[in-house]
Design a protein around this nucleic acid. Sequence first.
DNA 1: CCCACACCTGCAAGGTTCTGCAGACTTGAA
DNA 2: TTCAAGTCTGCAGAACCTTGCAGGTGTGGG
Lengths: 121, 121
Amino acid sequence: MPSRMIVSRELADLLRLLAHPDRLRLIEELRLGEQDVSSIAAALDLPATRISQHLAPLRAHRIVEDRREGRNHFYRLTHPGIAAWIVEALDFVDVRNRFGEGSHIDHVRELWTADAPETSS
Amino acid sequence: MPSRMIVSRELADLLRLLAHPDRLRLIEELRLGEQDVSSIAAALDLPATRISQHLAPLRAHRIVEDRREGRNHFYRLTHPGIAAWIVEALDFVDVRNRFGEGSHIDHVRELWTADAPETSS
DNA sequence: CCCACACCTGCAAGGTTCTGCAGACTTGAA
DNA sequence: TTCAAGTCTGCAGAACCTTGCAGGTGTGGG
C-alpha cells in the first residue's frame, strides 16, 4: 500500500472539509482570535445552527479547538497558519470569467490579510 | 454583495476541485513536467477514461493546460506552484489517529518534494 | 495513393454514494 | 423555565465510477 495513496486520501479529506464557502469565511473569521458561536453567526450572517454544524467536522479534524466558558463555546484555529495558506490559494483561482473584476480577489486578499477586522465591504 | 462571499465561493470551488485523491496524485504527477493521458494513467494505475474525466474539470478551471501532439494530449500545470502549495497542507492534516505512523506524511513529503521521480514506494 | 484498422482521448448515460440543509429533539447552564 | 449549543433524521442535489460510444490521428496493407 503506497504511502502516497494513503496521504493523498487524507489530503483530499482535508481539502473537502475546507471546500465550503461558509467554512472558509468561518476560518478567516477566526484568524485574529477565538470567538463563540453566536459571534461567528452574527459576523457571517448565518443561523447559529449552521455554524455549529460546520464547526463539528472542523473540530473532528483538529482544524479548530474549542474552549467552554459557561454556556458559550469559544473556538480558535489549531494551526493559525492555515488562514494564510488559504489566502495563498487565491493565486490559483481562475480569473478568466471576470473581466476587470479580478479586483474582487485583491480586495478580499486585503481584507483577509489586514490585521484589523473589517466592518463593511 | 460582499466581495468575501463571492471569493469564498470561488475558493471553495477550487478546493472542492482538488479534494479528490486521484486528482491530487495527478497534480503531483505533473509536478516535474507535462505528460500525456496514458502515461498518467499508467503511473497512477487507473483507467485512462477516469484520468480524462478528472482532467476535464481541472482544465475548465485552468489548473492544467493541454497541448496536442498527434493523437496524444500532453497536460501540464498552469501554476507549477500549486503542487508545492498542496504539499504545505500536510502540516494541517490531523495526525491524531496514526500513532507513530505520521512518518507516512514525512515520507510522501519527501517523495513530492524531491526533484527526481520515484519508482517505488 | 488510398483505405481500413488500431490507438488515444473525450463525451454521455446509468446507478450508487456522499453532502448540505432544514427542522425537531436533547443536553446543559443560568 | 428560558436560552444556547449540539445531535439526529429525512430529503434534495451533486459527485463519483463504470460502461459504451464517437471523433480524430497515425499506421500498414493493398
